[in-house]
Design a protein around this nucleic acid. Structure first.
Lengths: 130, 130, 130, 130
DNA sequence: GTGGTCTAGACCACA
DNA sequence: GTGGTCTAGACCACG
């Protein structure tokens, strides 16, 4: 994972979203421990406080829980919670985009066209190159 | 129009987006003047500085221009600019939502389903457009 | 208000509890603004970050909300929320004490005696002195 | 007994409180030996260091004493000490709850009501005691 | 080893 | 003026 410091999205949010994605995708399973705050802070080259804030958020949401002397572990409900949150977030972004487009009187067809282009663009993965 | 002070979207951006929409939709036509800063500030119950910042942004984008002794008037290119801006913004929102959904390993089909629901929920207002 | 740095209760918790009490008691009414983070930090001689964390907690709980450019204001539901929280917290403390006492096989009457003494002691207010 | 790893109460304290209760209730009598550190650690599925810390605390309090080659045995004064400790702890919890309730301007009557509910909810186990 | 709290101080966005 | 974020670094409690 890599942090983007040129966006307005706070770093702790990027981290939280990243973990949500990994939990929702089954990379971190219930009962498993997340990377320790310090380890992740070193890996991402950010301050431990920043990682902690991200983990705190996931804790409040019930996605993970703190096990004393161990660390943060994914809860049973974590996968469901993560999936829901990401779906809701995605839906919120879509709605926001639709409102913007509609305010310009862009037709439904054109809106779908914009969405389709976004879909195919995001589907591109790097394939190598020089 | 109404301002939402409880969202994370800055007020000045809400105003700017609103004006972009009206220009793109042909409510404000090239050569026509926008509501004066003071008038709009009073109507929206916001600080004039905030309206100023919104208008400044539209000015930088070339959507409107300041005509001395008159006020901000829509430029010739304004409609096109407004449309572009909103389309790009919509596209950005879509991309952001897609990234979130993909991070959770949500299938393309499901993503389209989420989008479709957002489309129908937002409701159709007028026909026309592109 | 005064901060007690000799307890295990975090400073931000003390601050949050203090505000909860003031809201529940009607000192801060719905729609009214809390002391600004910086002002309170200076008054209590703590770091602004610490006050912010307290306010954040109250925000998550729905007791206050952030109004852009203004500050944190008490919500409509704030009074009810604060009262509920404090009542629940009090009840939790009572339950904890009861469990401890019962584990020692202390009779119900004796437990009530302990409680009564705590009640009368807490009722004492300073009355002057040299 | 069962350890709760999700509470803010340290495990070593849960263990110490448990032993205090058993001594105060006469389950462990003066001169009798406590379960060995290793045995209790295995039974509770915790680190032996944690049990050690609990026993140390009881030792400092004079509730038990380490007899070389034997283990921790309850002292003569142990019952009295245990009872005192638990009573003080209970009293502390009560005071804390009362402070919280008073800060919300909850009437003395209501506070007693909250306490009564906590009492009845906690249920009566055995008779006897003081 | 794990996380929790706090400080000092900086920089930014918004109204 | 308001709050939001982040860093560097310290100290503590727990297991």
């Amino acid at each position: 994972m890599s942090i983007n410091t040129n966006t307005s999205v706070p770093i702790y949010q990027q981290i939280a979203d990243h973990v949500r994605g990994r939990v929702a995708a089954g990379i971190h399973r219930p009962g498993e421990m997340l990377p320790s705050i310090r380890a992740l802070a070193i890996e991402l080259v950010v301050n431990p406080n920043t990682v902690q804030r991200a983990y705190d958020e996931l804790d409040w949401e019930g996605l993970v829980e703190l096990r004393r002397g161990v660390g943060f572990v994914v809860t049973e409900q974590g996968v469901r919670v993560a999936r829901n949150q990401l779906e809701q977030a995605a839906r919120g972004s879509f709605s926001q985009g639709i409102v913007l487009a509609r305010s310009a009187n862009i037709s439904e067809e054109s809106i779908r066209g914009i969405f389709d282009r976004a879909m195919s663009d995001s589907g591109v993965r790097e394939g190598g190159g020089t």
